[in-house]
């Protein structure tokens, strides 16, 4: 080891080593939370998957279990926000962004089915939660710019939105199988509205761009279902109450 009169002040490498060790410790703590978040994410998604085989009239049970699963996820997100509160947000963001995207997707899908009550946001079937509402449900800030803390980013929200579209295109097919010819129409309109939104974004050549390119295929897939239904006169008439 170099002595103080040498080239290297030994404190330099000592402090580097302690910085590396601190960093490793934070990573370990994050990994631990992510492990449970990952498992909770699987649980929530497997529950929500039951929506594909459940008629709309009986969805309530699915929604309730999904809400309970989401509650667990919210708790883990809270832990994550807590242990990373002293670290720069973007330093470790890439460790959890996939898991967070999964959680946001679960919230969005559950919300579209009409769930995630008791979180202070209005619910209603067919609804798209805004990023602010998602933040409220997850109990974390969104799109933070003025301070450095845990939050949900716009990119994460949009990524989850694309996953929602993929899920809804599957649901459109399965609704027909369940004899529900109404829901594909509702999905078709919803997905088209989101697609229109994505089209005004100036996306660079990143993962969001690549995934958003896939939206149009889902739009087409859903349109084909609507076409199949209308061709066979299976589309329900608009409700008389509608103007």
């Amino acid at each position: 080891m170099a002595n103080p009169p040498g080239m290297i002040d030994p404190r330099i490498f000592e402090s580097l080593q302690s910085k590396i060790d601190e960093d490793a410790e934070v990573r370990d703590q994050i990994r631990e939370v992510l492990q449970s978040l990952d498992r909770q994410g699987r649980t929530a998604q497997s529950i929500l998957s039951r929506a594909h085989s459940t008629p709309a009239a009986h969805l309530q049970a699915v929604i309730q279990s999904a809400e309970a699963a989401i509650k667990d996820e919210v708790e883990s997100i809270g832990k994550l926000a807590n242990i990373t509160s002293n670290s720069p947000y973007y330093k470790y963001n890439n460790m959890w962004t996939r898991d967070v995207q999964n959680v946001v997707f679960s919230v969005l899908f559950c919300g579209w089915l009409g769930g995630v009550g008791e979180s202070g946001v209005a619910t209603e079937p067919g609804k798209l939660f805004t990023i602010e509402e998602v933040g409220k449900i997850l109990n974390v800030p969104v799109n933070l710019k003025d301070r450095d803390a845990f939050h949900i980013t716009i990119e994460e929200y949009l990524q989850s939105l694309i996953t929602l579209i993929e899920e809804l295109s599957r649901l459109a097919i399965n609704s027909v199988t369940l004899g529900d010819y109404q829901r594909p129409l509702q999905i078709s309109q919803f997905v088209k509205d989101i697609h229109a939104g994505f089209q005004i974004l100036n996306l660079k050549n990143d993962s969001l761009r690549r995934r958003s390119d896939s939206i149009k295929y889902n739009v087409k897939k859903i349109e084909d279902i609507v076409y199949d239904l209308s061709l066979r006169n299976l589309v329900p008439k608009a409700e008389p109450t509608a103007p």
Partner: peptide
């Protein structure tokens, strides 16, 4: 044709 996109009971 009943399947034209606008015909559904969206709010």
């Amino acid at each position: 044709m009943p399947g034209v996109k606008r015909h559904h009971d969206g709010i």
